[in-house]
Design a binder for these strands. Structure first.
Lengths: 229, 229
DNA sequence: CAATCAAAGTGTTAAAAATACACATTAAGG
DNA sequence: CCTTAATGTGTATTTTTAACACTTTGATTG
């Protein structure tokens, strides 16, 4: 079966930069390509958009097919359509970025049909196509956005300590914060709910666990109060 | 002549939300559609991407073809690919927004082959397709971005008064500023060059004209100083 | 079970930035 | 020369940000 049009059309794909966080690093989920071009090279998960499929849905579908991840934070990044970016033909890709917490999505769980693995941002393999550019763009977007939208919580488990939260910001923004000032700021935002639970299995004083209060955040946004860290 | 592919492909277009500013309003440039669907309705300028053409280039080309505008500030906004947004078939559009100064691009100059006209944002006609949604998205992006990137200057002529600059921010952000505080802030940014010229033909004390110093801005950005108004 | 270790948790002071606020000056027009 | 309309300018107060160090807690070890 084939499809015929009056005018030539570029092919359309989605690609997704999935960020995850572990103790030391910000990481990206890559898959090893099973087919040409760039066979066996590492690449962003993604694939062709189907006719009748919403672009966002395509990104989610491809992500699940290739990495097993679903129901995660996903946001459009940019559309790249440089004619020569794919050696086969003109392929326009809609790039997304996603945030997951590595604890609930460990490296092994993702290694499904295709070979998938997490890489630290400062230790990346050579990437297929222009995926290195897209990844860089995604990293810049993450850095920019994390300051004024509470997307960082997507990288943490549901309950987390304030120290974990601080480390997250320090990793993404590549700067350190004063512990007391950081906590004061976070407290003033008034979007964290203090649980009555403590960290488990740590060989020192256990820290209190907090939870991001989504509904509280929505209320504050409606009131015109804007999140900024 | 026709083109055949193994898999069905959505069509790909670009659309552009062009903002302009006059004394009282923020305005948008629309064109009246000459063909079906939505014949005679107002719509965003835009059109189909050609194979081998960069997506950004397509937006610029269509904009010039339909409105005569060229060499203007243009930035990608988002890609919209809801299957039913075009009644003919699945059309994915890459939306852009552009900023021009209305003084140098008056309403009449744009009325080329197709019918084009500027509309105040609070007095829009019914728009074709989902263009009203795209326009709203562009307006939000403009509001968000104008605070921390000096894109507002794109809406002004090369030389402008501080009062004009203040009015611009007040119109876009829909709030008022104190004249003295506004000027203090602008002065501290240190990205305006004071010219030795004054406003012409005003029936009152003429205000001094300023110019946005692009190279100075680039230097400051490189030094990590970030613009914020 | 006392000592050690590692990180949790907590306030104050000084500096900088944001805000509130009003009047004299200038130039054109009648 | 008087009126009009908008330009241009400074200070005091409040709020926000930044700098800075020690006690508490609880598990581990000898």
């Amino acid at each position: 079966m084939s499809f015929t049009y009056d005018y030539a059309r570029p092919a359309l794909t989605t690609d997704c930069v999935v960020f995850g966080l572990d103790e030391e690093d910000l990481k990206v989920l890559l898959i090893q390509r099973a087919i040409k071009p760039f066979k066996d090279q590492w690449a962003l998960p993604g694939g062709f958009i189907q006719v009748g499929e919403d672009v966002d849905d395509c990104a989610r579908r491809e992500l699940e097919e290739e990495t097993g991840l679903k129901n995660i934070f996903l946001e459009q990044l940019a559309t790249v359509g440089t004619p020569k970016r794919d050696p086969r033909e003109h392929v326009v890709t809609v790039a997304y970025y996603a945030l997951v917490n590595l604890i609930e999505h460990p490296p092994t769980a993702a290694t499904d049909a295709k070979h998938a693995a997490w890489f630290a941002l400062d230790d990346l393999p050579k990437l297929a196509f222009d995926h290195a550019d897209i990844l860089k763009l995604a990293h810049e977007r993450l850095r920019g956005k994390v300051r004024y939208q509470p997307i960082g919580f997507e990288l943490l488990p549901e309950k987390f300590t304030l120290t974990e939260l601080q480390k997250l910001y320090e990793l993404i923004l590549e700067q350190t914060f004063d512990k007391r000032n950081f906590r004061k700021k976070v407290a003033k935002l008034d979007i964290l709910e203090e649980t009555d639970e403590l960290e488990q299995d740590v060989a020192r004083r256990a820290a209190r666990l907090y939870r991001f209060d989504r509904s509280r955040y929505r209320v504050l946004i409606k009131q015109g109060i804007n999140f900024e860290l």
